[in-house]
């Protein structure tokens, strides 16, 4: 084997040649992705007048407006609902992940596929399915009435409850998958070692399993939270105008009020928050991978 020789592969190509391959996509994305985002950002710094966007003046008033109590209230609801969904998902996904990891590879694949189905099914179809269950004369209310537990229908959708249920269902996999990966990557010896030292079930979980999977859990939760914050169709269909979230409000501002500068300001704010959160989740995950592998741990 001529090892060092083999590392220097052919490169007789002209300098401009790579551009032929990467530029088409680069141009399409620059035109259809970067430019619109840039354009929208510029719009958010112009005032909105009756005649439309006043491109001659620059202002921060659109951002200032986001702090108004009306908008701030909706932002607060969005954060609250998203956080509830995220915490609920954490509480539900952890036991599921713990159980699945103990199964045979086939069993693991089977259940992972089941938990993945909501992600693979269209978001409006999911919302429709939930409305069959949650609406005033949906399956749940019908059944409870038939059993005599309640007399009048409970309000399970077109409010925050509907959003929470829909989002928990829709974004479950984004917590489950990293958690499952972290748990199955755990060195089983660690748990035996803990048991050997006299730790009991709950102690092992609290002192060994949980701390070691915490980074993965956190990373998954942050992603989950980000997706909840920016979800549109699920809160629109299961929450509606009674439980407006930021994205629904942004829809109204942009397409009903046609106040694009304000709408853009909302978009910029959402983008900034998501990028910040994604960065945070990446940092958490990489911090975790450093901690989960102490020196000399098995690969």
């Amino acid at each position: 084997m001529s090892g060092t020789d083999a590392t220097i592969q052919g490169q007789g190509a002209a300098r401009w040649l790579p551009a032929v391959f990467v530029l088409p996509l680069g141009i399409v994305l620059a035109l259809g992705f970067l430019w619109p985002l840039f354009d929208g950002t510029v719009n958010s710094f112009h005032p909105f007048t009756r005649a439309g966007i006043d491109r001659s003046t620059w202002t921060l008033e659109n951002y200032a407006k986001l702090a108004d109590s009306f908008y701030a209230g909706i932002l607060w609801r969005t954060i609250r609902v998203s956080l509830i969904v995220t915490l609920l998902t954490a509480a539900l996904a952890y036991p599921v992940a713990l159980y699945i990891v103990g199964l045979s590879p086939r069993g693991q694949a089977f259940y992972l596929l089941i938990y993945m189905t909501p992600w693979l099914v269209n978001v409006v179809v999911k919302a429709f399915g939930w409305s069959l269950l949650l609406s005033a004369n949906g399956v749940i209310n019908q059944s409870l009435k038939a059993l005599g537990i309640i007399e009048t229908s409970m309000r399970l959708m077109l409010n925050e409850t509907g959003i929470v249920i829909g989002l928990t269902h829709g974004h479950f996999i984004f917590v489950l998958l990293p958690l499952w990966a972290a748990l199955s990557g755990l060195d089983p010896n660690l748990r035996w070692a803990a048991a050997n030292l006299g730790a009991r079930g709950w102690d092992i979980f609290r002192r060994v399993t949980l701390p070691l999977t915490l980074p993965a859990l956190m990373a998954g939760l942050i992603i989950n939270f980000t997706m909840n914050m920016t979800a549109f169709a699920t809160p629109a269909l299961l929450g509606g105008a009674r439980a407006r979230v930021v994205s629904f409000l942004a829809y109204e501002v942009n397409l009903v009020e046609l106040n694009w500068p304000l709408g853009s300001a909302m978009a910029v704010a959402m983008l900034a928050i998501s990028l910040l959160l994604i960065w945070l989740s990446l940092r958490t995950a990489s911090f975790g991978s450093r901690r989960v592998r102490p020196e000399g741990a098995s690969p």
């Binding site: 680069g26 992705f33 430019w35 619109p36 985002l37 354009d39 549109f232 910029v268 983008l271 998501s274």
Partner: peptide, 29 residues
């Protein structure tokens, strides 16, 4: 070639932008 990593990140970047944000931008654009 120089800037390859950045270009690759750019090609994957639509994954990072929420649909609402891109939708608003596209509406106006």
């Amino acid at each position: 070639f120089p800037g390859k990593g950045a270009l690759e990140a750019f090609f994957m970047s639509p994954l990072l932008v929420p649909g609402v944000v891109y939708g608003i931008a596209m509406l106006q654009f």
